[in-house]
Computed example of a mutant assay.
Amino acid sequence: MNRTEIHRVGADDWREFREVRLASLADAPEAFGSTYADWVDAAEERWRARLTDVALTLIARRDGRPVGVVSGSSAQLEGDEAVELISMWVCPTERGTGLAGRLIAAVVVWAEGRGLPTFLMVRVGNAAAIAAYERAGFVSTGVPADHPVDGPPELRMVLGRSG
């Protein structure tokens, strides 16, 4: 039986990251701030820089092929240091398997290990992603007041805190 494994990647894994990132941008262009055209002809240096500049990038592999990706980026949440979960995508063949929850949980555990809260931004119309984040314990705080009016509306979701 094959299983999906999640691995942290770095700059030397840029080719694999390129493969999964371009697949995500082609599959779900409405879900991301970047576009396939923004990245398809990017030089190796740009791919390496993305993996260096963003603190955490994880790739899920099944049978040696990338089938999911997520990153955790240093950010500010209401003036405090936090981790923003960004660029999450799961291959259509892996949806419904729990992989999204595993990727989300891996970022949360990484943030918690640093004593930091986790939040994310998600397009208002992305019902499947919103449901996955809600299952993982994230709660919508609505569209931030400072959200750009010229872009698609995005909800901020913060990992729910007990108590």
Score class of each variant (00 low, 15 high):
G33T: 13
A128R: 14
S140K: 01
V69K: 05
V69M: 07
E30N: 15
V109C: 10
R46C: 14
A37T: 15
P92E: 04
A128Y: 08
A60L: 01
D80K: 13
H7S: 07
G115V: 11
G101K: 07
L85M: 13
V9G: 02
W110R: 01
E45S: 05
E84D: 11
M88N: 08
S34C: 06
G113L: 02
G96F: 02
I6E: 00
S73F: 09
V139Q: 05
I104Y: 03
W110Y: 09
R48S: 03
S87K: 09
S74V: 15
R135W: 08
V143F: 00
T35F: 15
V149N: 14
R3G: 14
T97M: 03
R114T: 15
E5P: 03
E84F: 09
R65M: 04
L116S: 10
M157C: 03
A42V: 07
A136G: 07
E154N: 04
R50V: 10
Y36A: 10
P148R: 10
D53K: 14
V67I: 11
Q76I: 15
V9Y: 00
V9S: 01
G125Q: 14
L25W: 07
L51H: 02
G33D: 08
G68L: 04
V143I: 15
A49D: 14
Y133V: 11
Q76E: 15
V54M: 09
N126W: 07
E44H: 01
L155F: 06
E5A: 09
G96L: 06
A105E: 13
